[in-house]
Amino acid sequence: MSFFKKLKEAISSKTEAVTSKFIGGLAKTRDAFGKVGELFLRRKKIDEAFFEELEEILIGADVGVNTVMALIDELRAEVKKRKIEEASELQPILSEKLVEMLRGSGEDAGLRSNPNGITVILFVGVNGVGKTTTIGKLAWRYKQQGKNVLLAAGDTFRAGAIEQLEVWGQRVGVDVIKQHSGSDPAAVMFDAVQAAKQRNVDVLICDTAGRLQNKVNLMEELSKIHRVIQREIPGAPHETLLVLDATTGQNALSQAKLFGEKSGVTGLVLTKLDGTAKGGIVIAIRNELELPVKFVGLGEKMDDLQEFDADQFVHALFAGLVQNESAEENT
């Protein structure tokens, strides 16, 4: 059975709506990856020139130099091991390697929750990446599941941040715990946790400041927030999600490295994938940081925040090739 056929079977259990979300949301990135498909069709022979061109295309698609070099090395090894001669035979192997890379251990899928009480999710990320919007959409997802949700306005630094979160709270139908601008974020978190306990809340979603000009202060602030939450709810926060703007490409990778381990990040959210051809950065970030991608933003609608799925992602990147191969198999 071909890899593409396996890929189609792997996503057959998913709803058509989710599949179309990924295919539609990754349209611009698919155009960038289309050059890969053209290369496999245009070049029959696998030689050094083939690998050089493939390397150039993948780097141009924002897959990241380190990740591309690792992929090319793995493809060279497979060519030698399987005695592959025709370029077309290498396409499904590339797709397979990408799925493996994006999937990681497979133990990171979905958000962790607290089976014994309130689940606390902390959001971090620089300003302008879509953090507040993501919080609103995630709150909506939980509401659709029948959960009692509360938001904490912990970004007391940026002008308008509290008001922006309140707008989302009203839109989704959840309350927002806040203090005045310039307040101690840890104090806001304390209030939010107490309110969550009193109101029998299922999920508490916390916003934080996104400034990086003074990284030391930011990291100290995040550490303090962690301590306050952990003291009130042992084991919390259950997820610390770093939000990255996919349209910034390699800069998103740099931001992720800046936050690093000190902020206790457990997973990533890649926003605005529908507005960029730089979706390949998802592969680079997943590979270089070894952090699971939990969600991706594939549009502006409330349900366009989708749980990340490696099979769906790669299927969407090579959707045209999957259709072409299926047509060939049926003739």
Rank of each mutant, 00 (worst) to 15 (best):
D304Q: 06
A27C: 05
G264E: 08
M189Y: 08
M302S: 06
E328M: 15
G275I: 07
G235T: 11
L94S: 02
A153R: 13
N127H: 07
S2R: 12
E85F: 13
R43E: 05
T133A: 03
S13H: 14
S113H: 14
G249Q: 10
E307C: 02
E221T: 06
K8G: 11
L111H: 05
Q145C: 01
R141A: 01
E53P: 00
G264W: 12
K6H: 07
Q230W: 13
L58H: 02
D175Q: 09
Q250A: 04
K81C: 02
T276V: 13
A284S: 11
E56R: 15
E288P: 00
A159L: 01
F313C: 06
M302T: 04
G24M: 04
N217W: 06
K178I: 08
N127D: 02
V322L: 13
V296T: 10
Q312C: 10
V216K: 03
E78R: 11
M219S: 02
V243L: 13
F123V: 00
Q312G: 09
D245C: 11
K21C: 07
G154T: 06
V243Q: 05
T29V: 10
E100F: 14
A152W: 08
G275A: 12
H226D: 03
A310W: 10
Q306T: 03
V79C: 08
S88E: 09
V124N: 07
L273M: 14
L102H: 09
D274A: 11
E325D: 12
L258C: 04
L58Q: 11
E221A: 03
V314L: 05
K147D: 04
D184H: 10
N116K: 14
K6Q: 12
N66D: 15
D274L: 11
G106D: 07
